Simulated assay, not measured.
Amino acid sequence: MELLECRLAIDDLDSFVADLGEIGDRHGVTIQAFDSRYVADRRHLERAVELADRAIERDENVARDRAVEILLYAAGRRQIDRALEMGVSEGGDRAVVLVDGGSDEDETTALEAVEKLDAFVERESTLETQDPETLCEFFDITDAERTATDTSLSALVRERVALLEVEK
């Protein structure tokens, strides 16, 4: 799995998503773009990929498309409409683009193609800082839950991702 932390300026979301799909198909990889405000850290996305792949292997997936299944797990939700809130939108976004599958070379080549899209503005570190309020609100993590444990916010988000598997 490779991640591209960046800034995007998307004029037409449908066209951008189609471009990602074409790049993925051409390089034999899965590509999903996330609004970085909703990504706790790299391990959050690694866990989402792992659980999505397990659901697909067991024929328990909700989405037909692997990228959408990864999005569902990353968002900790079974409803696609609610999970889409975690995706990028039109306008300017700090983003994380996930590329997974094929070989390391396929992933790298696909990332390079993403950087050539009109919507790509620049590489920018987007996972170094978290907005705890946004993450807690999106993943329904309460103040009481945070004070009851000394675990990190990232670990609590990964717990929500894992709970999706249990709640099926």
Rank of each mutant, 00 (worst) to 15 (best):
R77Y: 10
D106T: 04
V99F: 09
T109S: 08
G102R: 00
V97A: 05
L84Y: 13
D53M: 07
R77Q: 14
V68F: 00
V88R: 06
V49L: 03
E57N: 11
V97Q: 08
E107H: 01
R77M: 13
Y73V: 04
E107M: 06
E57G: 05
L72R: 06
V97S: 10
V68K: 01
E105Q: 14
L98H: 01
V99A: 12
D104A: 14
R54I: 00
R64V: 02
N61D: 05
R43S: 15
A95P: 06
A83N: 09
E105D: 15
E90N: 04
V49N: 00
D41E: 12
A110K: 12
L45N: 07
I56D: 04
L84F: 12
D81H: 10
I80A: 07
A74W: 04
D53Q: 14
A110W: 11
R64Y: 14
E60R: 15
A74E: 05
V62W: 10
L98R: 01
D41F: 09
R58F: 01
G101Q: 03
A95C: 04
G87K: 01
V96A: 10
E57W: 02
D104I: 00
E69W: 09
D41N: 15
R47N: 02
D35L: 11
E107W: 03
R47D: 03
A110R: 07
R78I: 13
L98M: 06
A75S: 15
V88H: 05
I80Q: 08
A75C: 05
D93T: 09
G91K: 04
E107A: 08
L45T: 06
V62Q: 00
D59V: 00
A40I: 03
A83G: 13
A40R: 07
T108F: 12
G101D: 01
V88Y: 13
S89M: 10
A52W: 05
E50Q: 11
A83E: 04
G91H: 09
T109R: 15
H44T: 09
T108K: 12
M86H: 07
A110Q: 07
D93W: 13
R94T: 09
L71F: 02
E85P: 00
D93C: 09
D35A: 11
A52D: 07
D100L: 01
V99E: 11
A75D: 05
R47E: 12
A55Q: 14
H44W: 07
D81T: 09
I56R: 12
G91V: 09
D65I: 13
G92R: 13
A110C: 06
